[in-house]
Amino acid sequence: MPERFTQLTSRTFVLPQESIDTDQIIPARFLTTTTRAGLGARAFYDWRYDASGAPIADQPLNTLDTAEHRILVAGDNFACGSSREHAPWALTDYGFRAVISTSIADIFSSNALKNGLLPITVDPETHARLLADPGGRVGIDLERQELTIGNAPPISFAVEPFARRCLIEGVDPLGWLTDRMPQIEAFERGHAL
């Protein structure tokens, strides 16, 4: 069942690099887990720990107050690469609830929305403002589909309507599918493989 999401006001954390891929978000060697829990400790692992496994002192991800910084602002083409849902599991367990970029990979966005992590794409100008103000205060209102940066007027953003409903109303996608079982069975009877 997805986490609900309606409104969020928080400080941003900025990772300006383009094309931060899923192997950066959660390296493949941590995918041997059979649960969803605890992956936050492994998020961006190879950026945060040196070869001996010691935390890198000047890496902000190691000292970030994750209760205060729940919005990740990332460079273009965020989360490209693999279909691993471990990527949004790691980011939400670490503490993020929203990701903002100029483009976000398809499969990642789909996975993120199922885990209460809101992916928001913005125009390059808005993106540049966010990149220029790390730690700035941003408000997200999913019901109004509005993003407010500091005291500036709100900017509207797009979100797939069904995913929005799931996040706001707690509609469960799997339950929604199982409710359509009669249609699925009827389709199957006439479907040639």
Binding site: S83, E85, N111, K114, L174, L177
Partner: peptide
């Protein structure tokens, strides 16, 4: 096409 684990469940 590739899908995430939630969708594998679906």
């Amino acid at each position: 096409f590739g899908i995430g684990t939630s969708e594998v469940g679906h």
